[in-house]
Nucleic acid binder design. Structure first.
Lengths: 209, 209
DNA sequence: ATTGAATTGACTGACTGTCAGTCAGTGTGT
DNA sequence: ACACACTGACTGACAGTCAGTCAATTCAAT
């Protein structure tokens, strides 16, 4: 077959992007390496030249996505002109923080067959994002809006609960159940951080359109 | 080969038990159906005569274990001579409730390669156990030791956090980190249920041996 | 400067081994 | 003679390997 060489960067990206699209279309388990390489038009060996296993590329995709989110969160957290509460509002309402899934990738992750990847991503996102949130909590302590010792442990607790309970597919809750649990989440986050009741009202907008 | 026929019940149990032990020893993914049947001395077809897939037996094992725990929890919850707090203490300290894993099966579940099963079990245990806990919370409300509306949603929130955060392998925390997070957990559970500070001291025993 | 030999590293694809799952058929108790 | 437990060779699919190919790059000799 005609041999086409590309810059490693480019090839790697090509493989990642194609794999990502296929994982979304048919699910990780059902997507064979064969499918990926045929779609691109490369040989089996090329795939394994870049990735040591099929799982490795999955992690690469997840890490890449999470990396973008972490970067975004850091930007917000380090912005000196925002109050702690404003930072929380930005991170929790806008954006995909607290919900690892980019719009694009969320479908993949919520397929039942991708449970494993999903949990992996959830865990990683908690571990990487919680220190950033903890920093914001410390800022809030200094501003006097929070009163929370051991910010990291506290943030992790509520983060995990919110992440795993409210995040997409895991618990198959109805809209009503989700709404109720989000209200509880707000109350508990406020209590956990020692914030005034209502501080996190943005989590439960009363939609009057 | 010499053909040995057994009562279906017995055969089924034999398969489940052997599979359970092997999953523990080598992990679910790395344990082939071949291994299981060779250990027992049956043919491939026999395995598939009893279970429609490899995953099916995994679920059977998980369900069986969870079933025992749920039954135990129900017994405690329905015991009219125990106070709500006593019930919580029994369920949270003794036993494997809030930690699906039986001593025996916990090793399997915490192998990294069994992440999928692990999450499955965690989710199922939350869904099945939380209504039981919610009942105890209602009892506590009547006794005046708790003040918690929407008990189910509340319980699920703290349950998920505690389960996913503190349970075994997921977050690879050190002993020190676990201890700190358990203290936070106690505080938040008390706040969630509107219980007096210290009500759940049994969660963090000061060990003076 | 030009040649061409040596080296590198991206790339190939036939091949291996493994495994989940199937099925046509066999033995056994009632 | 019937049904039900059981058999094991077989299939198809797949992840991963490896010996080798090819083109670009480097560099030493002319």
């Amino acid at each position: 077959m005609a041999r086409i060489t590309k810059a490693p960067e480019e090839r790697r990206l090509e493989i990642v992007q194609t794999a990502e699209r296929l994982f979304r279309e048919v699910g990780y388990a059902k997507c064979s390496v064969e499918m990926i390489i045929q779609r691109i038009g490369i040989a089996k060996g090329t795939f394994y030249y870049y990735f040591k296993s099929k799982e490795a590329i999955l992690e690469a995709i997840a890490d890449q996505t999470l990396g973008q989110i972490v970067e975004y969160a850091k930007d917000i957290a380090d912005n000196p002109s925002l109050s702690a509460l404003a930072k929380f509002e930005t991170l929790l309402t806008n954006s995909h923080v607290g919900n690892v899934d980019t719009q694009d990738i969320s479908d993949i992750l919520h397929l039942p067959e991708n449970r494993e990847l999903h949990e992996l991503t959830n865990v990683k996102s908690v571990l990487q994002l919680s220190p950033i949130f903890a920093k914001i909590v410390s800022q809030g302590n200094q501003e006097g809006v929070f009163a929370a010792d051991r910010p990291l442990a506290r943030i992790q607790y509520v983060f995990v609960a919110t992440q795993f309970l409210l995040d997409g597919g895991l618990f198959q809750f109805s809209d009503q159940e989700i709404r109720e649990r989000r209200e509880i989440a707000q109350e508990l986050i406020e209590k956990t951080l020692g914030a005034a009741p209502g501080s996190f009202d943005f989590m439960n907008p009363t939609l009057e359109s």
